[in-house]
């Protein structure tokens, strides 16, 4: 269960941004909407532990990780939170397989090629396992990003505009794969977007002002 209470963040020299309290149960899938500048990415980075809040608490399964030390937070994030960005930003010198092995290692998990192959098969990119990421199409790269976010079976999956760089067909596919992958590991899925194509499929939505 993810809980965010009384959360706010202030960039230096700018007014403080406050975020509505909300609670997400395990398996919940939320869409976070809002106009540009409403702090969508800031909220996602706060929830992902990439940024520390000015006030408020974030807890995941009773771990009050917004108050963790940097070292503890890095470890917690690697083990429990998977993040998908607008672009995959995979390590260019490594193959798709090696990128996922790296994710397992950084998350402190056992290196398991078989598990990775199964996941890649589900995401329909198993045949690209030994390719370098820059040889893949945008849609395929986004699948790699999803694979990387879910490989360690996180409790929480965050996605920041995961479909805005994709065409309609790929957008739908990536959206479905994201939801399926989150379901498969029973993770909370939070998607931040201004992509209207996603609105119809997420019943739970949080609107930022």
């Amino acid at each position: 269960m993810l809980k965010s209470i009384n959360l706010s963040f202030q960039y230096s020299g700018a007014p403080s941004i406050s975020f509505p309290d909300f609670t997400a149960e395990q398996g919940d899938q939320w869409l976070i909407l809002g106009p540009s500048g409403s702090g969508k990415t800031t909220l996602l980075h706060l929830l992902g532990g990439l940024l520390s809040p000015s006030t408020g608490n974030i807890t995941l399964d009773d771990f009050h990780y917004s108050a963790f030390s940097p070292a503890k937070l890095d470890k917690f994030r690697g083990e429990n939170i998977g993040i998908v960005f607008q672009k995959a930003h995979a390590v260019q010198s490594l193959s798709v397989m090696e990128n996922l092995l790296l994710a397992q290692q950084l998350g402190g998990k056992i290196l398991d090629k078989k598990k990775i192959m199964n996941l890649l098969e589900r995401l329909q990119i198993a045949h690209k396992a030994n390719q370098k990421p820059n040889r893949l199409s945008a849609g395929e790269q986004q699948r790699v990003a999803i694979a990387r976010a879910v490989i360690n079976q996180p409790r929480l999956i965050l996605a920041d505009e995961p479909t805005s760089a994709l065409d309609d067909k790929n957008s739908t596919e990536v959206q479905n794969l994201l939801k399926e992958s989150a379901d498969a590991v029973n993770a909370i899925l939070l998607v931040v977007t201004h992509d209207n194509r996603l609105k119809a499929t997420f019943p739970k939505q949080l609107l930022l002002k």
């Binding site: 990439l50 994030r77 690697g78 930003h89 390590v91 790296l102 994710a103």
Partner: peptide, 16 residues
């Protein structure tokens, strides 16, 4: 400069 995103992503994956 070329790798700054992948370095940042490695950090999000838990790299110290």
């Amino acid at each position: 400069r070329e790798r700054k995103y992948e370095l940042a992503v490695m950090r999000t994956l838990g790299a110290r």
